Amino acid sequence: MRAVNNLLVLYTGGTIGMLETPQGLAPGGGFEARMRDYLAAHRESPGIRWTLRELSPLLDSANMQQANWLAMCDAIVEAVKKDGHDGILVLHGTDTLAYSAAALSFLLLGLDVPVVLTGSMLPAGAADSDAWSNLCGALSLFESGVENGVHLYFAGQLLHGARASKLRSEAFDAFTALPRYREGQRAEQVPAVLTYCQPRVAVNLAVLPVFPGLQAAHVRALIDSGVKGLVLECYGSGTGPSDDQALLQVLSDARQRGVLMVAISQCTQGSVKFDTYAAGSRLRDAGLVSAGGMTREAALGKLFALLGAGLDVATAQHWFALDLCGERAQ
């Protein structure tokens, strides 16, 4: 770990910088001035040198899309490689904060600087807001030293970018690293095609929970929409309606059509182990790939990074099964 000397604060919008409008809270510009005024008025605040860049358009993170992930990635790489920044703080809304942290964990592989994402549950300036404590806490991390890679900082906790999830919609300690079992071989070396140097494109991805009443027609309609990757949220250890031959056939056909399908557990403390039950092994035989104990956010972000790099399904499946940044292994 090393102290950061030239920090970029990348402001993407979110609650932390929202202002009241006739329609309710909305992202507001001019956050740099508000941040400098606060830090100047609180001499105990971290004294790290920083500059701020606003992404356009500023977003309520409920509107976050793949194109915004790519814009954040490009801005971060440019800040490091062109402008000489040695650390990045991303200010982001909380609704999709864990999704963006996971996606950036895979999009920025090989970029040897620390990237920390944070936000707040209440806007800066609101009574009893958590905005300044989260922001100053993140600045302190950069000042004292933080490991390279992507992290999520919230309510005093520094979390792995590809292991965090939002569990609470109102409490200040909204995020946590779920205690999910992780297993998987660590990739000995990440190839250039999977690093930040590789351009990415948008990918048609979907997430579908298994539930009593899920029909083959539901899945067929999703596959027919052109989906290239599917995260199937299975029961428990990776089970589903394995006596539904029509459903199994749709999954098998999708795999033959080149759709990469991965299975995660619906349980907050769970992981996929297909061989535990026959109901799991039949899903595996139909073409599903185990995501082990990966979160929904990590599985989706990893699919995006792999398929968005133009990998064929077999190659993407190979790398999905390996641990790239700590998302699968302890």
Rank of each mutant, 00 (worst) to 15 (best):
N5E: 13
L8H: 04
Y11G: 01
I16V: 13
E20V: 14
P22Y: 03
Q23G: 14
P27F: 07
G28Y: 03
G29C: 01
G30N: 08
F31M: 09
A40N: 10
A41W: 00
I48R: 05
R49T: 13
W50R: 00
T51P: 00
R53Q: 10
S56R: 13
L58V: 09
S61C: 13
M72H: 05
C73L: 07
I76V: 14
E78K: 13
K82I: 07
D86R: 09
I88G: 04
L89S: 11
G93I: 12
S100Y: 04
L107S: 10
G110Y: 06
D112S: 14
G119P: 02
L122E: 11
P123R: 05
A124D: 12
G125N: 09
A126V: 07
A126D: 13
S129E: 06
S133I: 15
N134I: 02
G137V: 06
L139E: 03
E143D: 15
G145S: 06
G145T: 05
V146N: 03
H151C: 02
Q157Y: 03
Q157N: 14
Q157P: 00
L158N: 12
L158C: 07
H160S: 09
R163N: 06
K166G: 13
A174M: 08
A177I: 02
P179Q: 08
T195Y: 09
C197I: 01
P209R: 14
A217W: 00
V219I: 15
A221F: 02
L222E: 08
S225K: 11
E233K: 15
C234Q: 05
G238Y: 01
G240C: 08
G240V: 12
L247W: 09
S252T: 15
S252L: 08
G258D: 01
I264T: 15
S265M: 03
C267S: 14
T268C: 11
D275M: 01
Y277C: 04
Y277I: 00
A278R: 14
A278E: 14
S281T: 15
L283H: 06
A291V: 12
R296L: 15
R296H: 06
G301M: 04
K302T: 06
A305C: 09
A305Q: 05
G308H: 04
G310W: 02
V313N: 00
A316H: 08
W319S: 03
L322E: 06
C325F: 01
G326S: 02
Q330F: 10
